[in-house]
């Protein structure tokens, strides 16, 4: 679970590096759940400087390689303006911004992950 946005302290970087290390060691990551400001990991409109890491893109690449389930909490996302096409339409907004490989869903996905995974590791501030 990632509770803090990218480029804000270190939680997203730590979560990414932990996830990558776990996958490299052959473990299964059942899901990465982005909650609170962590939902900012999932915007496709971020443009970090060229000499900085692009955390959203790092997640996308890792997800593409390992078929990771990257879930953004819907309630946290709506408050912060992170929308997919369906949510944008439902709320009458003129655009959506969810990054490819991320999906918006509910807290039930966190509960399910807590039940099905052997360990739950929380990164935040």
């Amino acid at each position: 679970m990632v509770n803090e946005g990218p480029y804000n302290h270190q939680a997203s970087d730590s979560a990414y590096r932990f996830t990558k290390a776990a996958l490299d060691k052959g473990h299964e990551i059942f899901r990465v759940f982005f909650y609170h400001d962590g939902v900012y990991n999932g915007t496709r409109l971020g443009v970090p400087p060229q000499d900085d890491r692009n955390i959203t893109q790092l997640w996308q690449e890792l997800a593409a390689e390992h078929d990771l389930d990257l879930v953004v909490c819907v309630a946290a996302a709506q408050r912060r303006g992170i929308l997919d096409a369906d949510e944008a339409k439902r709320h009458g907004k003129d655009a959506d911004n969810i990054a490819e490989r991320f999906r918006i869903s509910g807290l039930g996905q966190l509960i399910e992950a807590g039940i099905k995974a052997d360990r739950l590791v929380v990164f935040g501030d």
Binding site: N3, R17, F18, K20, A21, A22, D24, K25, H27, D118, R119, L120, V121, V122, F123, G124, D125
Partner: peptide, 20 residues
């Protein structure tokens, strides 16, 4: 420890408590 060691610590303990 490095990140590999972090992963091993998570798997070798029953559960993980983050003091945020």
């Amino acid at each position: 420890v490095d990140y590999d060691g972090f992963v091993d610590l998570v798997t070798s303990h029953d559960n993980v408590q983050a003091w945020l």
